[in-house]
Amino acid sequence: MLLMDREKGFAAMREPADGREPVAATPVSPMVIADAAETDRIAADTVGDVTAKDAVICVRGGNVHYGETHALRDINLDVGRNEVIALIGPSGCGKSTFIRCLNRMNDTIESAKVTGDFRLDGQDIYARDTDVVMLRARVGMVFQKPNPFPKSIYENVAYGPRIHGLASNRAELDDIVYGSLERAGLVDEVKDRLDEPGTGLSGGQQQRLCIARTIAVNPEVILMDEPCSALDPIATARIEDLIDELSQKYAIAIVTHSMQQAARVSNRTAYFHLGRLVEVGPTDKIFTNPSHKLTEDYVTGRFG
């Protein structure tokens, strides 16, 4: 009961669901240190260990500007293989911006400028010779709002393998599609109607379809940008279970507004505030015994 109420409370503060959150940084409530200079003073250095054992993604000194806005400031953070890292923080703190840097989705925004050292398996993500297509095949993404293509369920999942040439014949493609749907926990619900449009599914099913679509490309890292923000609690629970299963095989970075969700699905948690990474640490430590004042204020619900 309590949990439901908290959920609702958070729902009211969620970022607008149009997926444009990173473009305009919205100020946080007045209780908070809303001043960027003030944040700089008290959170210039990240508290906690930013490194991960066996890191697949490694970011050092990451900065993002949207035109005049300095959206991310000097971020250092690793994502380890087979770990789920949750990125939390108030609206406009830069967490979505951060994960969009990891597969260069920010390239599609004209005004965005990314500087710093972003590495995937030691390879510079922003190097000139890095191929975006290959990068995105390796670093998949699930978006805030379920966005299945206006095609059949089968074609939705087959889209990635098709464009990347992962299957050499129809049977292989079928295998990939079924396998992906199965791992996304959707196969039982849709196996008899693979020809129906993906947009006809319920919200939760659509989001799992999008996850199936992402894992069909067999990525190494999956980025999730508030994957449950548009879903009801039951659908959310299923996605959370799914994330748990997927973490066996993939490194997952998940942006979330729900602290319960972060606590449930992640091993590590990173707290962002006004473009700064304030604190990183094991999830239970962040929620039970945060070191930084800002983190404590946030997880105890003094603002959000």
């Binding site: 997926g19 599609t108 995105r136 095949a137 978006f143 293509f149 990635g160």
Partner: peptide
């Protein structure tokens, strides 16, 4: 056509022309 549709396709590693032609 919503931006989310484009992002979904780019996020899977599709090129621009693939996104345009197929989505």
């Amino acid at each position: 056509v919503p931006r989310a549709m484009r992002e979904g396709s780019y996020g899977l590693g599709a090129t621009k022309s693939e996104t345009i032609k197929r989505v």
